[in-house]
Design a protein around this nucleic acid. Structure first.
Length: 273
DNA sequence: AGAACATCCTGCTAGC
DNA sequence: TGCTAGCAGGATGTTC
């Protein structure tokens, strides 16, 4: 589910509710969610009573920084979500299925919901080191990363998906970026001309902006919902992703589906070269 | 070096 | 209508 736009949506909604607030309880009901720890009590003991200083994001990671210096890292992987409720309106009988973690402040209840249990929460004493440049980082910085990859024989899609280079891009936005750049996702990076490489970099700017503004993509009714249960609407703008057989918004040709870098991949056979 | 594949899971859906 | 195989927005490790 979540790529940079969805994770950033959660971050922006979490931040005002958590900043300067003390965690008053933390409970985990599924060992996989806190699998990096021997017991979820390690997390509880470290953060209950601590005050949140910052709510950050890098790529698809959320980093809740406590005044104590502890970092609570959250990765939603494929099916993770965060929900918040005002304490007064919260009724545990209405909890959705697969609510594996509940933590609270004085005013709010937060649920970590994750059917597939790939998602996780864990503590570190320092911020995680991320090799990749965040999707929302300045354009010129990312250009350097792409230029450095311009000799690679790997496909554009493989590079976009590789968090060591551009972190935060997942399968949906990789397809959308290639469509916006009018480049085939399977093209090896070292086959791109300087103009095409520039187009790729600019396409990331276009897609990141529209995706954040739309508060993410909700491909199906029951897929991505933000912290208050609202749908994102970037799927309305999708050029190619999950649109096999439908007309390309640019030229009307039928969108095709293939497999690139091991992932389902959509593209317009007419616009993308 | 890089691609292909399996793996961790549950839920949805296309196809029979 | 009901079943099942296959696939899913991620990341990591192994094998070739």
């Amino acid at each position: 589910m979540p790529e940079f736009a969805e994770v950033e949506t959660f971050r922006r909604q979490l931040e005002p509710l958590l900043i300067n607030q003390k965690i008053t309880s933390f409970e985990s009901f599924h060992p996989r969610t806190t699998r990096r720890h021997l017991s979820p009590n390690e997390i509880r003991d470290a953060i209950v009573g601590s005050r949140v200083g910052e709510v950050k994001r890098h790529g698809k990671y959320i980093d809740i920084v406590f005044d104590s210096g502890i970092h609570l890292n959250i990765h939603l992987r494929m099916s993770g979500r965060i929900l918040s409720y005002e304490k007064d309106s919260y009724d545990p009988r209405n909890n959705p299925p697969h609510a594996h973690v509940i933590f609270t402040t004085d005013k709010y209840i937060f649920l970590f919901v994750d059917p597939r249990t790939f998602g996780e929460m864990w503590l570190t004493s320092e911020a995680l080191v991320h090799e990749g440049i965040d999707v929302l980082a300045p354009t010129a910085q990312r250009k350097k990363v792409l230029d450095a990859m311009s000799k690679s024989s790997r496909s554009i899609k493989a590079i976009l998906l590789d968090q060591k280079y551009t972190s935060g891009i997942g399968n949906i936005y990789a397809d959308e970026i290639c469509a916006e750049a009018q480049l085939l996702p399977s093209r090896p990076m070292n086959s791109l001309t300087a103009t095409e490489l520039d187009r790729l970099n600019k396409a990331i700017d276009v897609v990141r902006t529209e995706a954040i503004e739309a508060r993410g993509s909700s491909l199906k009714d029951k897929s991505f919902r933000d912290m208050h249960g609202e749908l994102g609407h970037h799927q309305m703008k999708h050029r190619v992703h999950a649109r096999a057989g439908k007309p390309c918004p640019n030229c009307g040709a039928q969108i095709l589906k293939t497999r690139v870098a091991g992932r389902g991949t959509y593209f317009c056979p007419h616009c993308q070269h």
